[in-house]
């Protein structure tokens, strides 16, 4: 279950190691139809094809996350989603300024 509407490419999280000796760090997200396209797109979007960097991609819906505060009994484990509210929201039509 990706939570994405039908036809939309799934969301991937992107992790980049900028240079040797460093950890991979989360740099952002993107959409891709499959893993290979995700690596390819990540290279274009987040590294502009800088050579020598290592990229990890993982489907957002494959990530299991802890709940915000596991110690607090009031917070029932929020499940296994990266994002807690994978529902869609209706946005009011009156949206003035920006």
């Amino acid at each position: 279950m990706s939570g994405a509407p039908q036809g939309e490419w799934p969301l991937y999280e992107v992790f980049v190691r900028g240079k040797r000796g460093l950890n991979h760090v989360h740099v952002g997200s993107l959409h891709a139809a499959d893993d290979r396209m995700a690596v390819h797109n990540a290279r274009d979007v987040y590294t502009r094809r800088n050579e020598g960097v290592s990229i990890w991609v993982v489907r957002a819906d494959a990530i299991t996350a802890s709940s915000p505060d596991e110690k607090d009994p009031l917070f029932a484990p929020a499940g296994d989603k990266v994002y807690r509210h994978p529902t869609f929201y209706d946005i009011p039509d009156d949206v003035p300024h920006m």
Partner: peptide, 11 residues
């Protein structure tokens, strides 16, 4: 067709 491809073609 999508933003990712827009960026790739521009590259």
């Amino acid at each position: 067709p999508d933003l990712e491809e827009d960026i790739a073609l521009a590259n």
